[in-house]
Nucleic acid binder design. Structure first.
Length: 245
DNA sequence: CGCCTTTGACCAGCGC
DNA sequence: GCGCTGGTCAAAGGCG
């Protein structure tokens, strides 16, 4: 089912790109801002749906790019491998999750069933809201880390970035029911948000029919509770599989 | 008492 | 080498 969803999404995506290039070829080439500082490539390995993959989170705040002559080279580097040897070696799996919260809620906490210990908080340059750093409470035996920061684009969203995979079961694994329940609800929310964000991303570039298409896609996916439940179950199942290995 | 958060200091990578 | 930046450390204090 996941494979088919991915396939359909890719087909649709390709179709959209074809339409885009036919209508206005130059729009597609709006430059993706290249981060000066090194940063982990968005891999989204934990969530293969691809709702938010491919595109970087960087809002293309078309700042003045002074020197264009090296952009092709930089792009090629980005595409091939931004960080050559080290990352492919220690495969710290990175996944990103968007969690809706109230904007008034200043506690950077994301409930995911695991226990976390905060070890730092920083104000970053590209985002007015601080970023919180968490380690799994089972550290150092469990290497998982996560970063939580309110999205700069959509302040109602918390962006949680997970690094690595848990080498233990969640704390409420003993209550088998609670685990699966919590997991699936999180994934469902994430799915809804993914579609929402997808729509937002596209809206920024173009409007009219793409918007309609995407909203149809998003609503048809999220309306069907059976579908989202089944998808969430499948994903959480895979997550549990991964965390066991 | 044990575990947690807070927060300034410290460290390492990067560009100039 | 220097300054900027993101990430981490660790002392201090809070809380149940």
């Amino acid at each position: 089912m996941l494979a088919r969803v991915c396939e359909s999404y890719n087909e649709l995506h390709n179709h959209l790109e074809k339409l885009q290039s036919r209508q206005s070829p130059e729009i597609e080439q709006t430059d993706i801002p290249i981060k000066k500082r090194k940063q982990d490539p968005d891999e989204f390995l934990g969530f293969p749906i691809g709702l938010s993959s491919g595109k970087t989170e960087n809002s293309s705040s078309n700042e003045d790019h002074h020197h264009h002559h090296q952009q092709h080279e930089q792009k090629n580097q980005l595409l091939s491998c931004k960080r050559p040897v080290t990352d492919s070696f220690n495969k710290a799996k990175v996944s990103t999750v968007y969690v809706p919260t109230e904007t008034s809620d200043t506690s950077l906490t994301v409930k995911d069933g695991f226990q976390w210990r905060k070890y730092g908080q920083k104000v970053t340059r590209d985002n007015p809201s601080p970023r919180a750093y968490f380690r799994c409470s089972f550290a150092p035996s469990c290497p998982v880390k996560k970063k939580v920061q309110r999205s700069a684009e959509d302040p109602s969203l918390l962006v949680a970035t997970y690094e690595g995979t848990h080498n233990h079961l969640g704390p409420n694994a003993s209550e088998g029911d609670a685990t699966s329940q919590g997991g699936s609800s999180t994934v469902t929310l994430d799915l809804v948000n993914g579609c929402h964000r997808l729509a937002l991303e596209k809206n920024e570039r173009d409007n009219t029919m793409q918007e309609v298409l995407i909203q149809q896609m998003a609503s048809s996916l999220t309306k069907d509770s059976k579908f989202t439940a089944a998808l969430a179950a499948a994903i959480s199942g895979r997550l549990m599989e991964q965390s066991r290995t």
